[in-house]
């Protein structure tokens, strides 16, 4: 089948998609966007987390056909997505007051080469993960970044318990999570201080 959807603000068309293929597979193997990770393909680890119409989902559990006509943001588009949000645009309709229409959300377009992640600046959460030492092997990082960015969008001043609750669907095996906590606190603090 053919699936048309928007990835990081750009229309995409995937041909010859099998009915059983997941969104994760289509992103990684058909669209050349391997940033979303395949740690379990069972919906348990969160490494494949993307935003589907603004909502964080495990892309391994979303059938590719289900994304027809919808908006997907992956780690490759996260920097532009965050920039757009910071500039006052509403990237998905999920932020701001209730009732933002999907059409308005679709007005967001990625800048720079967000198809590969190259060239653009980093989002605050990406920078904070680097600075705080929250990246070791990095396999959990893309999913955690998408999930943490979404939480900070909803809750700019999270408590530690809020952070832990929001990120409890993302497994990390290297860090013991302490530096991930540091990174999210850092991003929140920088955000609130306008750094």
């Amino acid at each position: 089948m053919r699936v048309n959807f928007t990835v990081n603000g750009r229309p995409q068309e995937a041909d010859d998609v099998w009915e059983g293929e997941s969104l994760l597979y289509v992103l990684r193997e058909r669209l050349g966007l391997p940033g979303s990770k395949n740690a379990c393909e069972q919906g348990e680890c969160g490494s494949c987390t993307v935003r589907l119409d603004g909502v964080p989902v495990c892309s391994c559990l979303v059938a590719a056909g289900q994304v027809q006509g919808r908006e997907v943001v992956t780690v490759e588009g996260l920097a532009d997505y965050a920039k757009q949000r910071a500039e006052g645009g509403c990237a998905t309709g999920a932020c701001g007051s209730a009732g933002t229409s999907l059409d308005e959300a679709k007005g967001w377009q990625a800048k720079g080469d967000s198809q590969t992640g190259e060239g653009g600046e980093l989002s605050p959460i990406q920078q904070a993960f680097m600075d705080a030492g929250a990246v070791q092997c990095g396999f959990c990082t893309p999913g955690l970044l998408v999930a943490a960015d979404e939480m900070l969008e909803r809750n700019p001043n999270p408590t530690d318990a809020d952070i832990r609750e929001a990120l409890s669907g993302n497994l990390c095996r290297c860090t013991g999570y302490e530096k991930i906590m540091d990174a999210v606190r850092l991003a929140a603090a920088r955000q609130s201080e306008g750094v």
Binding site: T74, T116, L122, G138
Partner: peptide, 10 residues
């Protein structure tokens, strides 16, 4: 390698 790891390019 951390820039590549946070942008999904690694």
């Amino acid at each position: 390698d951390s820039t590549l790891k946070v942008t999904g390019e690694f």
